[in-house]
Design a protein around this nucleic acid. Structure first.
Lengths: 109, 109
DNA sequence: AACATTTATATGCTTTTACGCATCCATGTG
DNA sequence: CACATGGATGCGTAAAAGCATATAAATGTT
């Protein structure tokens, strides 16, 4: 069996990650230009990054993420579901029902 | 007030992150060449990445991290302590922690 | 409605740099 | 010594970062 997990360097591999940043940007009410100004990057580059046209560098990724109130952390795979659950529970507005400690989540099921 | 908290694109900014990957690599008992073989990268590049000489791209970072059993996640800043605590608790003592059965694990730890 | 104006995102082009190959410098080990 | 094993460096090339400009979609004004 060929087990090609999405481990290549194609745009699709990073697109999911970048999509999250794009949503976070909009959640902050920022335009590409606004975000660019915040982190000192040209709007054109933000555009290419979000579209997956370019493979953004770690430094730029850190600046963008942090300016959006996010901190990229390398989480052990076994803890990913727990962390995702934690994030979901936090971002829920006025309805915090007793949530199970773990929830089957997307990532790349 | 000038509040430029080390948010530049200098090597120092990413060194912290990369140091974690380096430790994770050693924890896996892998050499730079071994890791490179796992992810299809030349050893020379792993060297430059870990030393901070180059600003590694997101795709490469994802491949490296995942090959080490780590998943980079953008965590809201307010949740960072909680996540860190989770990771600390997990890595305590060598006894196998209650692994969530649904953590898709492909490679040998 | 048509036209201007502002705002948001995308594209062409140049400079800088990550990536990849080969090579080289260590420090073992028989 | 020969020969591994782990890591670093010079160099060419493809691609990211940066600048200016173009397109798109709203927003306003007559």
């Amino acid at each position: 069996m060929e087990m090609t997990l999405g481990m290549n360097r194609s745009p699709a591999a990073r697109t999911v990650w970048l999509q999250g940043l794009k949503e976070a940007r909009k959640a902050c009410g920022l335009s590409q230009a606004g975000l660019g100004a915040k982190v000192g990057l040209p709007q054109s580059h933000i555009s290419r990054i979000e579209s997956g046209a370019v493979d953004v560098g770690l430094s730029t990724l850190l600046e963008i993420s942090r300016s959006l109130g996010l901190e990229p952390i390398a989480v052990p795979r076994v803890l990913v579901p727990a962390v995702r659950s934690l994030m979901r529970a936090d971002s829920r507005d006025g309805s915090p029902p007793p949530r199970p400690a773990y929830a089957l989540e997307d990532e790349r099921a």
